[in-house]
């Protein structure tokens, strides 16, 4: 689903955000992406959604090489990717229903189909009763769930999340992660950028670790747990 081949990203001014990054996330796989801030997590996600383009190397999404993707075909690519943002990026001048319906309206779905899918997505994230509410009146966790409903309503094959639990307490964060796992179980590929080690160490998924723009480790969250345990034993 996502394939990086020796990808470099250099910004004007010479700052190298990513260097020599290679990995392959298969269809239906779920992975976490961690690293300190500035390690290149956001840059990597931006390359996937074609917000930025790689300076060197190839990025393939769903078999499509983004280097050869024309600007006018970017919208079609983005419709295949559901994105969940840390700051939700909801539109605050319209209702929850209208926010979630937006991807469907952009894709040109029929009105009756839109209603059915929006309600199904809102039901899934537990917000069915809040269709007519303005998002500003919702709590942070609820707003994040509206964002998730919007990301999955168009049933994209790939779901990206950038620090989806950044502003939430542990209880809500676990709930949100549970939602992502459920989506993964029905075959959606999921990539979540996060620095919440405590949270992901309890889950067993693939873990990509970035350090200063390089892919430092490509392993499993369980390994991180083991390392932690080993570290604790040593210090005892």
């Amino acid at each position: 689903m996502i394939q990086f081949d020796n990808v470099n990203k250099r910004y004007p001014g010479g700052y190298e955000a990513l260097s020599g990054v290679s990995f392959h996330l298969k269809a239906g796989e779920m992975a976490f992406l961690t690293g300190h801030s500035g390690a290149g997590k956001s840059s990597l996600l931006k390359l996937i959604a074609c917000i930025e383009r790689a300076s060197r190397g190839n990025v393939l999404i769903d078999g499509q090489n983004l280097r050869r993707l024309k600007n006018r075909h970017i919208p079609a690519l983005r419709r295949k990717i559901g994105v969940v943002f840390q700051n939700h990026n909801l539109l605050y001048d319209r209702t929850v229903y209208d926010n979630v319906a937006l991807p469907l309206i952009i894709a040109g779905y029929h009105q009756s189909e839109v209603g059915r899918r929006v309600r199904a997505a809102l039901d899934k994230v537990g917000l069915l009763g809040k269709e007519r509410v303005m998002p500003i009146t919702l709590s942070g966790g609820e707003q994040q769930r509206v964002g998730i409903a919007r990301a999955v309503v168009n049933r994209p094959p790939l779901l990206l999340a950038d620090e989806p639990t950044g502003n939430l307490d542990p209880e809500l964060s676990r709930e949100i992660m549970g939602l992502f796992e459920q989506f993964n179980q029905v075959g959606v590929s999921v990539l979540i950028a996060t620095h919440d080690h405590d949270l992901i160490s309890r889950l067993d998924h693939r873990l990509l670790t970035l350090k200063q723009g390089k892919l430092e480790r490509d392993g499993w969250t369980s390994e991180m747990q083991e390392r932690k345990r080993a570290f604790n034993n040593e210090s005892d």
Binding site: A49, I51, P75, R78, V83, L90, L102, I106
Partner: peptide
């Protein structure tokens, strides 16, 4: 910006 990210055409 948000609608462009969701895949809206120009």
């Amino acid at each position: 910006i948000v609608t462009k990210l969701i895949g809206a055409t120009n």
